[in-house]
Design a protein around this nucleic acid. Structure first.
Lengths: 123, 123
DNA sequence: CGGGATCCTTCTTGATACTG
DNA sequence: CAGTATCAAGAAGGATCCCG
């Protein structure tokens, strides 16, 4: 059973935002979570979905997410080796967050010309 | 008017998740957005809410967010100087995302003992 | 197949001092 | 008050090679 990293000190109210963010940042974690939401995947299956990731990075990211209790790693004693990654209960609870990120990305990928104006002066 | 950084290539479906994430990661941006949701703030007002941030970091983060079209910077020609930061339309549109991050953080800050188990074997 | 180990480069962050 | 400039440290990420 992997140890859980705690990123939680007790700080100002906005800190919960940061704590969550720290779990899913890191260049690939968001996408990995996104793909694992659809089901268990093997190492190379994830790798194919990310295309430009290196083995080392993928391994690192997966290990960190495992340490954070977001994903589970299952090793099958076979030859050739088979390792499956799936979401934990905790990992799956991030679904609303991942969903919110995706929805926003889809809507705001390209910037609307006037979206960069202050709210107060937008009228 | 600041230039907008585009982090968008066209990649796999999960890429929208990543694109959004890249805008709000960076150690302070999430919290800054969180606080600016409540209204316009001056430089040092933000700084006080973050406590342990350095001027340099705060300036950097604010500048990047400005470049990303998320916040607006208003300089008043006064002595002493007065600079206010507020959300843009685009920045405010992130509210559901920030909210999702905060809700999750509040709920899952401390790990439930069995939350790190795979979904499949959780029954 | 799914890594581990190593080396190297770049990005990020921090500390400190100075300024209009 | 709200920065800028500079220096230095560390973390993140990439390239490559080896392994059970």
């Amino acid at each position: 059973m992997p140890r859980i990293r705690h990123h939680q000190g007790n700080c100002s109210p906005g800190c919960a935002v940061e704590a969550t963010l720290r779990l899913i940042d890191g260049k690939w974690k968001g996408v990995i979570l996104y793909h694992l939401l659809e089901g268990t995947l093997r190492f190379n299956a994830i790798r194919r979905r990310l295309a430009s990731v290196t083995q080392r990075m993928l391994t690192n990211q997966l290990r960190e997410m495992e340490a954070d209790g977001l994903i589970a790693r299952t090793v099958y004693a076979e030859v050739p080796p088979k390792v499956e990654y799936s979401l934990t209960v905790r990992g799956r609870s991030l679904e609303p967050v991942i969903h919110a990120l995706k929805v926003w990305g889809d809507l705001h990928a390209e910037l609307h010309p006037d979206a960069a104006r202050p709210v107060e002066t937008a009228a």
